[in-house]
C-alpha cells in the first residue's frame, strides 16, 4: 500500500515537468517571435534566453527530483 502511494506520488510529481515544458516552450517561443521582429537585437539577448530557460527548466527538475526521492529515498 505504501509502495502504491510512492509510485502514485512519483507519477503525480512528474506532471510538474509538463509545467516546465510549457515554461521553456514559452520562453523559447517568445524569444523567437521577438527575434523575428527585431533580428538585430536577437544576438544580444541569447544569454537572457538561456537564463530564462534554465530558470523555467529548474522547476521541472525539482519535480523530477521529488519523483526520484519518492521512488528511491523514501
Amino acid at each position: 500500500m505504501e509502495q502504491l502511494g510512492q509510485y502514485l506520488g512519483a507519477g503525480l510529481a512528474c506532471i510538474g515537468m509538463a509545467g516546465a515544458a510549457i515554461g521553456v516552450g514559452n520562453v523559447a517561443g517568445n524569444y523567437l517571435s521577438g527575434a523575428l521582429r527585431n533580428p538585430s537585437a536577437a544576438a544580444s539577448q541569447t544569454a537572457t534566453l538561456f537564463i530564462g530557460m534554465a530558470f523555467a527548466e529548474a522547476l521541472g527538475i525539482f519535480s523530477f527530483l521529488v519523483a526520484l526521492l519518492l521512488l528511491f529515498a523514501v
Binding site: A54, E57, A58, I61, F62, F64, L65
Partner: peptide
C-alpha cells in the same frame, strides 16, 4: 536552486 539546478539536470 543554484546547486540543485546543476545536479538535477545532470542526474536526470
Amino acid at each position: 536552486s543554484h546547486s540543485i539546478r546543476l545536479a538535477g539536470n545532470v542526474m536526470a
